[in-house]
Amino acid sequence: MIASIAFYLMATATVVSALLVVTARNPVHSVLWLILAFFSAAGLFVLMGAEFLAMLLVVVYVGAVAVLFLFVVMMLDVDFVRLREGYARYLPLAAIVAGVLLAEMIMITLAVVQGGVAADATTPAVATPDLTNIEAIGRVLYTDYVYFFQAAGIVLLVAMIGAITLTLRHKPGIKRQKVADQVGRDAGKAMEVKSIPTGQGVSSEELS
C-alpha cells in the first residue's frame, strides 16, 4: 500500500514538475522544476528496485548536470519580454517535434504492452537473486560490453580534452604562482647578512 501511495505521489510530482519546466516564466525556476523532475524520477527508479540507477541519476544529473544548467541560466542576462517574442514563430516546429516524440512513445508503449518487444528481447543476462544491482551491472558491463564501455569512456575523454583546449588560453606576461619556488625559498636564498663596521655605515653601491 505504501509503495503504491509513493508511486502515485512521485509520478504526479514528476509529471507536474516536468510540465512546470516548460511553463515557468523564470528560467531559473524552470531549472529548479527540472531538478525536482529528476529527483522524482529517481524515486520511481527506487520503487522499481533499480536503486543503483536511481542514485546515479541523482549524482550525475541532479548533482552535476543540473548545477551547470543553473550556473549558466543564472549568469545569463535574460530578457523575459524578448524571450516571449519568438514563441509564435517557433510554435509549428516545436509542435512537429513534440508530435513525433509523442507518436514514438505511444508506439513503444503499445509494442511493450502487446508483448512484441518482450518476446524478442534477450532475457537479462544475470538473473541470480542473491546478486545486488551493482554486482549484476558490473558483471555485464565489464565482460560482455567492455568494448562499448571503453568506447564510451574514450568519447568522454575526447569531449573533456576538447573542452579544455577550447577554454585554455595562454596569455603572455602573466605572473603565475610557483608553489615549489615559494616553499623552497629560505633565509639563505632570500637575504644576505653583511657585517657593517661601526661608525662607518655602508653606501648603497655596497648593498646591491
Binding site: 529517481a42 536503486e51 543503483f52 542514485m55 541523482v58 549524482v59 541532479v62 548533482g63 544491482n133 551493482i134
Partner: peptide, 9 residues
C-alpha cells in the same frame, strides 16, 4: 546496499 552512493547523492 547502495549506502555510500546514497550519501554521495
Amino acid at each position: 546496499n547502495v549506502g555510500i552512493l546514497y550519501i554521495f547523492a
